[in-house]
Simulated scan of single mutants.
Amino acid sequence: MRKESSKCITYCLPREILVDIASKVASQSLADLYHLKLASKEMMNITDDDYVYKHAYLDRVPFLRITKIPQDSFLRRCRSSGNLESLYRQGMEYYFLNNELCDEGLGMVRMAAQKGHKRSMYAFAMIVLMCIDARRRFFGLEELEEALAFLRFLRNHKCVLRCRNEVGELVSSLPWSMCSYLVMTITPCLCSSVPCTNTWRPRIGSEYLETEDDDDNDPNMCENCRWDHEVEEFYENFIP
């Protein structure tokens, strides 16, 4: 009965609407997408559209895979279809775990960030503000300004803490013995005023943010102090 109902739907609705429906299913659950694929041959064809892979939800797909598994071909298809989460993951893997592809990996993270992927925005910003590789590559003014612009965007959308935790969870899970070429260091403070008369502080009056609403966005406060604090928090909580 289910297959007959599915076949009726595929005949009644235009393909573009069906693809859009399938993409929304994919953005919520890969398990539901799998069941949708099995509904009929017509739905199998619909769910194979690039637009569906572009919106696939990957949070439950492990970042690091010890052995090659069928998910690898799925993730490659997601990347080739423009899935930003997949691009971000590949970029982070290259940057942290492959010395030869380090620059390419950072380029992937930056590209995903430029297209609006929030985790990539945060990851790129932290790399620029905090990381120097074994070749002592310092980031220039262009990268710094872009990193700060990403952080402002995340702050305005009240998702700095969420992105910190999500990116930090990924970074802290990395096998650091495989990326010994990477040197993590706290760069000189963005704020050069000592002491800063308008230094940033959370709205709650403590040194920690408990919710996004505790991040005081008062324009009179020093923005550089805010991001110096963010680098400290990320470093202390997630860097081995």
Rank of each mutant, 00 (worst) to 15 (best):
R155T: 04
L174P: 10
A56V: 01
N99E: 13
R119M: 12
F74Y: 14
F124V: 04
P70H: 02
W176M: 10
K54C: 15
E166A: 13
D103T: 07
V167C: 07
R137E: 12
A147P: 04
R119V: 08
K68I: 14
R60I: 03
G116S: 05
Q71A: 14
N165T: 09
M178L: 13
G105P: 03
Q90G: 00
M178W: 07
F139W: 11
M44G: 10
F63P: 02
A147G: 04
E85A: 11
F63G: 02
N83K: 02
C78Q: 03
V167M: 09
F139T: 03
T187M: 15
S173A: 14
L182Q: 07
R136M: 10
D72F: 14
G105C: 09
A149E: 12
M130A: 11
R76I: 15
H55L: 11
V109H: 00
G140A: 04
P175G: 08
S80Q: 14
S81V: 00
S172L: 04
R136G: 11
I186M: 12
E100N: 06
R65T: 09
V52R: 06
P70R: 01
P62I: 06
E169W: 10
S86V: 06
S81A: 15
L106N: 00
V109T: 12
W176L: 10
Y95N: 05
R79V: 09
R65Q: 12
D49T: 08
L87I: 05
I66W: 08
L148R: 08
N156I: 09
G91H: 08
Q114H: 02
G82R: 09
P70C: 04
V183E: 13
E146V: 05
S73H: 07
L161C: 03
Q90Y: 03
V128S: 00
D72Q: 11
K115G: 02
V128N: 02
T67E: 12
V160N: 06
M178T: 02
G91I: 01
F150P: 00
G105N: 11
Y53N: 10
G168A: 05
F139Q: 09
F139H: 14
R137A: 03
I127T: 09
R152I: 04
N165E: 15
V109S: 02
N156W: 14
L161D: 02
R79N: 05
C102G: 01
C163E: 08
A113Q: 06
F150W: 00
I46H: 13
A113S: 07
M111F: 10
C78T: 06
L58V: 04
G107Q: 10
E85T: 13
F74M: 13
R77P: 03
I186K: 15
G140W: 01
